[in-house]
Design a protein around this nucleic acid. Structure first.
Lengths: 327, 327
DNA sequence: ACGGGGCATAAGGTGGACTTATAGCACGCT
DNA sequence: AGCGTGCTATAAGTCCACCTTATGCCCCGT
C-alpha cells in the first residue's frame, strides 16, 4: 500500500469511474487500473465492483475508502506540522498518575515535555487509582496509568512496566539491621503501615500473607504516600511499596532501607490507558510517547532497582512473571 | 512524502543512527541517507541533527516522528480492516441531530449505515440544538449537527450545508392563494407559529423582521417540530422553517405550500461537530462519511429545493451567501 | 446492428530507488 | 600526532516499477 495508491483509490471511489478519475488526476486510465489491481492484490480481495457504468465499492472497499481519506488527511497534517515554525504541537494534556508513579517519574516527565514541546501544557493529576479509573471513564483525563487491565471500556490499554514491591524501613530503624532481604514471616512480625482495605495494593499484599497463613500487623492505614513515608521515617512502622515510593524521598533527604522479599514475587503491573492511539490528539500522542521514554529510562537506569520492562519486549520476556494474580 | 520514507524515518529515529537502521531494514545505508534527504527537502527544513555518534530529531523531527508512527499504525489498521471478512467496522455511534435535520435525512442516514455497515449501531439523538451543544461538550455524542460555529471547544467543525428558510402554510390554507413567493411584510400579517425566544431559529427570523421595522404575529410558540407541523396543518397558523420540516410530513400524507421570501435571504448554516478527524473511531468516521454523502444527495436531489452545498465546494461557491449573520 | 463508454491487458520507455564505491569528519585510543 | 573506527553524504551505475500508447472486450442505449 502506498500513498499514491491511496490517493488514486479515494479519487476513483469519489468519481465512481476509473476514466473520470484519470481525467481528474491527469494520468492515463490504465495506470489507475494497474495501481488498483496492485492494491487489491495486496489486500487479497476485490474492493470495487466493476460494471459498464463504472465502479462502486463493496463493504471492504467502503471501509478502506474512509480509512484512506483519514490517512491522507493525517499525512497532510503531518506535513503541515513538520513544515511549521515550531512543530505546532500545542494544547493541554491531562494525565492521571498514582502517587508512586508521580514520585518515580513525574518530574522527569514534566521536564521532558516542557523542553521538547514548549507549547504543550501537561497537567499531572495525582490521585488514587480508583479515582483515576473514574476520571478517565468520565473522559476527564487524556491519559492514565492504572494497575488493572480489566477496566471495561473502549479505551486502549497497553502494558507500561512492572514494579517490584519492597519492605521499606527507615534507614536508622532498629528492625532487621544489616539485612538486604526479608521473608514474609519476618514481615508479619513488624508493625506495618498499609493503605486502606479497598486499595488494590493492600489487597495484593494481603493475598501473599494469607497464602502463608500469616496476618500483617497493621498499625496504621494511610492513603497518602507522603504521609506514609513520613510515618515510616518517624519509626511508626514499615511499609510495603514499590521503589518509586522512596525516589522522591531521597530528594527530600530521607533515607530508607529497602528489603527484597526472598520467598515471594511481589510485583504490580502498570498499564497506560488512553483513547485508542488513532484517536488521540497530537499533543496527547507526544505526551504518551514521552511517558514511554521516561519509563524506559527508569527501567534501564543504572542503580535503580525494582522496575521491569513491559511484557512483550524481547529482552524482557523472560524476566516478566509467568503468571500474576489480577489486581 | 511516501510510506517507505515514513517507515525509514521512524526506524532511523528509533535506532538513533542511519547505519543501525539500515541493518534493521536490510537496505544499504546510503539509501536511507537519500530518502531522508528527500523527506527533508519536501518538508523544507532539517528534521534530524547529525553527529559522529548518530542522529537525534529536533522538535519538528520529533513531532513528525510521533505523527509518522500514528500514520503507519493506521495504514496497518486500514489494511487489516480491508483484509478482514467483512471490513470489521463495528461499534455504537451516537449522533445528535436537530429535528429538522432528522426529518430531512434521518431515515436515509440510518438506512445507508445499516446496509453498508451492518455491525455499526447508529444511535440518532433528536434534540434541540442547545441541548445537543451541551451533550457534545460533555462527550456524550460522537457527532452532532449544529447551527453555530462558535461553540468554543477542541471539537472539529466543518460546514455541512446551508438551508433556505420558507414560509410554510397548509396546502389548503386560505392565506396567499396561488402564491410562490412572499414578502416579509406579507408574512408579518400572518398568524405565525414559531419556536420559543431562546431558539436560534427564532432569533434569526426576528432579526429580519426588525430590520424592516416589522413584528411577527406569533400565535403559538412550540419547540416540537411535529407539533408545529400538525398545528400548521390544522390552520392554526403558518411557520418559517427549512424545507426539511416538510419532507417527512409528505410521507405522512400532509401537504404544505412553501413560499420563498422574495425580499430576504433567510438561510441557516449547518455544521458537523465531531472529535478532530484523526481522533474519531472507525465507526464514527464512516458514519460521518455517510452523513456527508446523504447531505450531498439531498443538496443535489432533483426537485428538492432549499438546500445548498457547504461553502468551499467550487460549484457552490457563488451560490453561498457572501455574508450571513452569525446564529 | 452499431456506436459510445467503460475497464483490462500487453508492450515499451523512462525515471526513481537501490546498489557499490568512496570521501569526509569526529572521536577515542595509543 | 597518528591511526582506527564509526558515522553520514555523495557519485555513478543498474534494475525495476510506473506511466504511456495501443488495443481488446464487454455492456448499454439507440
Amino acid at each position: 500500500m502506498d500513498i499514491r495508491q491511496l490517493r488514486y483509490y479515494v479519487r476513483i471511489v469519489e468519481e465512481g469511474s476509473l476514466s473520470k478519475a484519470s481525467h481528474m488526476l491527469h494520468v492515463a486510465q490504465p495506470a489507475l487500473s494497474q495501481q488498483l489491481a496492485k492494491l487489491e492484490e495486496e489486500v487479497g480481495k476485490p474492493l470495487l465492483v466493476r460494471s459498464s457504468k463504472g465502479v462502486t465499492p463493496n463493504e471492504a472497499g467502503q471501509a478502506l475508502y474512509h480509512h484512506a481519506r483519514l490517512i491522507l488527511r493525517q499525512i497532510d497534517q503531518a506535513m503541515t506540522i513538520a513544515r511549521s515554525e515550531d512543530g505546532n504541537i500545542n494544547g493541554v494534556v491531562s494525565i492521571g498518575l498514582p502517587a508512586t508513579t508521580v514520585a518515580a517519574i513525574g518530574l522527569e516527565l514534566v521536564r521532558r515535555v516542557r523542553e521538547r514541546f514548549p507549547k504543550v501544557s501537561i497537567n499531572v493529576v495525582e490521585a488514587m487509582s480508583g479515582h483515576l479509573e473514574h476520571l478517565i471513564r468520565q473522559n476527564q483525563l487524556d491519559l492514565a496509568v492504572l494497575f488493572s487491565r480489566d477496566l471495561a471500556s473502549d479505551l486502549a490499554i497497553e502494558p507500561l512496566l512492572v514494579e517490584e514491591l519492597f519492605l521499606i524501613l527507615a534507614d536508622d530503624s532498629d528492625h532487621l539491621p544489616g539485612r538486604k532481604t526479608v521473608t514474609m514471616a519476618e514481615a508479619a512480625e513488624l508493625p506495618l503501615i498499609l493503605p486502606t482495605s479497598t486499595h488494590g495494593l493492600r489487597r495484593r499484599i494481603e493475598v501473599e500473607f494469607e497464602a502463608r497463613a500469616l496476618s500483617p500487623k497493621v498499625v496504621a492505614e494511610i492513603d497518602s504516600l507522603s504521609l506514609v513515608m513520613r510515618s515510616v521515617n518517624d519509626h511508626i512502622g514499615a511499609t510495603i511499596k514499590p521503589m518509586g515510593a522512596i525516589l522522591q524521598e531521597n530528594d527530600r533527604g530521607h533515607k530508607f532501607r529497602c528489603l527484597r522479599f526472598e520467598d515471594a514475587k511481589l510485583r504490580r503491573s502498570n498499564y497506560l490507558y488512553s483513547l485508542p492511539p488513532e484517536s488521540l490528539s497530537s499533543a496527547a500522542t507526544v505526551v504518551a510517547g514521552e511517558l514511554r521514554t521516561v519509563v524506559d529510562e527508569l527501567v534501564a537506569g543504572a542503580g535503580v532497582e525494582g522496575f521491569f520492562p513491559r511484557p512483550g519486549e524481547a529482552a524482557a520476556e523472560q524476566t516478566a512473571p509467568a503468571t500474576e494474580p489480577a489486581e
